[in-house]
Each structure stands twice: as C-alpha cells, then as structure tokens.
Amino acid sequence: FHRRLQRGLHWKDFAVLYRGNFQSRILEMKLQALQIPYKVSGGTGFFSRGEIKDLMCYLRLLVNPDDDNAFLRVINTPRREIGPATLEKLAGWAAQRDQGLYHVCDDFALGEVMAGKAADKLRAFKTWLDEKRRACFGHNSLQAVNELITEMDYESWVMQNASSPRIGEKRMENVWQLVRNIQRMLEKQEDDEEGASDLEAVISKLVLMDMLEQQDEEDDSDRVQLMTLHASKGLEFPHVYMMGVEEELLPHRTSIEEDNIVEERRLMYVGITRARESLAITQALTRKQYGEKIDTLASRFLEELPLDDLQYIGEGFKKDEEKEDQVAQASIANLKALLD
C-alpha cells in the first residue's frame, strides 16, 4: 500500500514469488482481506481448488438451504450412492412442491416417486446436515466445522481420489488452511465486536471472496502477480517480493538432504533478477510444521549477497524512524493528490 501510494504505481507493478505453490494460500487470503486484486500465474487460485469448492459448497448449504448448485455438488461428495436417476426424480418432486432440492429430501411422500432405499439415503443426509447446521450456529461453531469434515470422512475420500498420497495430503492441507482462516476471521469478529462471533457472516465473506476470485480470473487488468520462482523465468517486474527465503524452503529440504543445492541457487538468482527496481526478501520467524511451531533459519544464500546492498527491516533490527516518517508522509501526500 505504502509503495503504491508513495510512487503512484499500479498493482501489476508488483510480483510475489515463492518456492512452492503451497505458500500462496495464506498470501491469497491476506490479499483478499485487504481487497488487493491479484492473479495466480502457473497455478490454481485457492478457491478454484476442488477440495475448497467442496467445503465451500457445504458451508454455502449450511447458510442457504435453497442453494441447489451447492446441494448438487455435495450430495455425493463423499460418495453416498445417490445416483443421477435419484436426483432427477428429486428435482421433479421439488419442482412440483415449488421448493429447493435440500428442503424436500425428508418429505414423507418422497418414497412414492423413488425407491425407498434412495429416499432413506436422502433423508439421512438432510438429518445429518440439519444437525451440523444447529451445531455450527451454536456456541462452538469452529468445532462444528471440524466435525462436519471428520464425520463425513472427507480425508479418506480425498486420499482415494488423489493421484498420489502426497497430492492427497496437500489437498487436505488446503482444507485445514480454510478452517484456520475461518478461525482467524471468527477471532477477529470477537475482537472487533466485543465477544460476538457470527459464522454466517464469515461464510458470507468467504463466498464473496470466492466470487471476487472468479471475477479476477476473467479479468486481466491491474493485479498483483503471484507465482513460483520456476514460473517467473523470463519475466520481469518493477518491484518483486521473494517469500520464505529460509533453509528447507530455499534451498529446499530435499536438495539439502541430497547435498545438491546448485539448482536452488539458480532459482534464487532467477528471483533476484526478476526485479527491475526493487527487491524485498522475507523470512518468517516461525512456521507451523506437522502441527507444531518451529523456528526458521535464514537461507544460506543470503550470506552470498553483498552486504552493502542489503537493508534489514523487522524484528531484531533497529528501526529507522526518520525514514518511516518520510514514507508515511509521502503516502499521505499521494493519497491527498488522488482525492483532489
């Protein structure tokens, strides 16, 4: 924000580079929360991932039982042996009753238009999700969201349909990332509204983020570029941010274990040379790994850079208050100029 306002830049002047696609998840959520437009290049947007679409449709159905599109996505995910013929008959019955598909799943007369076994499965699904709805909008909504995922054994479904165990694990990590984002949003509500917590408002905000991401995918205008270091080869941007320049990320853990970091050093060089005007390199103080927080180490590649060209900012380094004041004043001046 500061740099854009200070220099009158465009969002497309900025690129955020990272070693692995998994690093984009939290970046996307943060940019969406700040209403900064972005584009994920060479990868898939967070809300475009199949597992996120599944969970979002469950959440949409919780807050809006009339959402037939969400119902059709989740009714057989994970598989509940409710086939197309059953859904066709359900749709015909719903049209006769002038109601949504979900609402008529427990109609007492549903057995008249389909096999009793199929009607029982629909009724069981609605009974279960109604129970989850009551729990989600009760005292511990986050626990209820977790139970929603575990009770339908969604992880087994993901692992069975993944091309490899590693891909399945990554997809489930995306699911738990969404849950963590819900937790943060609920906690922020409590802080902002003196203890109030509204899951429905959080889900509505997530649905809006989803819609905005879909619009962004169709719009190639002024947006921050997010991409891996591999995908950035051959491209240049005025201002570049390299995220997670840490041991076991860059260089990657596998390269360290195999004592082969030559390609990792080349990737670091690629990232540095993508920047035409400025380059910011970031390191997290801690990261969560296998459910535990661990301290990070700065990448060994930083020691290979000329010290005179580096300016350290952040925890553990002395603030240049005069420079910070100059940046703030310049940002305010540019903001006033935009409003005039």
Rank of each mutant, 00 (worst) to 15 (best):
Q215S: 14
E217M: 15
D219G: 05
S221G: 15
V224I: 10
Q225I: 11
L226A: 01
L226W: 04
L229D: 00
H230G: 06
A231L: 07
A231G: 12
K233C: 11
K233I: 09
L235F: 11
F237C: 08
F237Y: 13
H239P: 00
H239Y: 12
V240Y: 02
M243I: 13
G244D: 07
V245A: 14
E246W: 04
E247A: 01
E247Q: 12
E248K: 14
E248Y: 08
L249I: 14
P251S: 08
H252Y: 01
R253E: 14
T254P: 02
S255L: 04
I256A: 07
E257P: 00
E257H: 10
E257L: 10
E258G: 03
E258K: 10
N260W: 01
I261F: 09
I261H: 00
V262Q: 11
E263T: 02
E263M: 05
R265A: 05
R265P: 01
R265W: 09
R265S: 02
R266W: 11
R266F: 02
L267I: 02
M268Y: 05
Y269N: 12
G271R: 02
G271H: 00
G271E: 05
G271M: 07
R274N: 05
L279W: 06
A280H: 06
A280N: 07
A280I: 13
I281C: 02
T282Q: 07
T282Y: 04
Q283C: 15
Q283M: 14
Q283R: 12
A284K: 08
A284S: 15
T286E: 13
T286C: 12
T286R: 15
T286S: 06
T286M: 10
